[in-house]
Write a protein that binds this DNA or RNA. Structure first.
Lengths: 152, 152
DNA sequence: TATTGTTATACTCTATAACTATA
DNA sequence: TATAGTTATAGAGTATAACAATA
């Protein structure tokens, strides 16, 4: 295997670094993700929030932030934005008046489904570079690494 | 396959999104990368610069930024920092007085080798979650995706 | 005209700490 | 005393635009 790219740069020390390769690959998929989301006026981070609320209606902001591994302080502006777009709504919790229960509006559900479809389609463009079964294998190994970290 | 994690959150819409999984996995490896680098007083970004200069002595700042796909304006502070640590030196180019040729000092070479070893060792902790040959396969598929994007 | 290094600047993402109102 | 949401703030990372020196 060559360690040089088409510009004659030698990448030996980064060639077998998963940290480096994962970052580069993630940037590729982020572009796809970003493009699909931008068409609908949001960002990949906001999409992930919608995706969680879609299948878990009624969660609190803290529960969503914990599900996505981001700080709860980051949720405020995010939910403000999604509420201003009328795709998410905060409802006062009955049992705990400190927190909100988050729900998608009807518009928000259709919005999220459309977005999901666009993001999926965008990712499909790269499926042509994978052999039969490789996509599933890739998802599986990534899951194993993510879970491995949690256990540490 | 369950779409819920141990907290009962349903991740259906993110479960098969490579963009999401790659980001989470990249964060895991970034932590490892970051820890190894922090022990030596630098960051993963600075390590990648050292790794390029190590095997490509004499490159200009622009060439390094292009090799790593970052803007050349970001190189200024980075090389300033590495020069202040006495691991990199800027030498005036003979043929083009606009640019510098970048070299590692003797100290910088040993520093980079030590760093490379620490980063590699850090990554090895996750090899136990992969079967025989999977690491190579993973690197290969990531390369295919990165190259696919370039060709677009 | 184009390019190299530089500076100033701005924007995103994210984390921390402190506050308030509830529990 | 602990937790949910909020606010202010700060840091890292990165990109853009403009400038001087040089090609």
């Amino acid at each position: 295997m060559s360690t040089e790219d088409q510009n004659g740069i030698n990448y030996s020390m980064l060639q077998s670094r998963l940290g480096y390769k994962l970052r580069r690959t993630q940037l590729v998929y982020f572009d796809v993700f970003f493009e699909a989301c931008a068409q609908e006026g949001i960002t990949p981070g906001l999409f992930s929030i919608l995706a969680i609320i879609y299948h878990n209606p009624g969660l609190t902001q803290s529960a969503v932030s914990s599900a996505l591994d981001v700080d709860r302080s980051a949720m405020v502006a995010a939910i403000d934005k999604l509420e201003s777009m009328e795709v998410v709504e905060r409802r006062k919790s009955k049992n705990d008046r400190r927190s909100y229960a988050l729900y998608l509006t009807e518009k928000g559900k259709a919005f999220t489904e459309r977005l999901d479809h666009k993001v999926s389609s965008g990712e499909e463009a790269f499926d042509t570079f994978m052999k039969e079964g490789e996509r599933e294998w890739l998802l599986d190994i990534l899951d194993r690494i993510i879970e491995a970290r949690k256990g540490q």
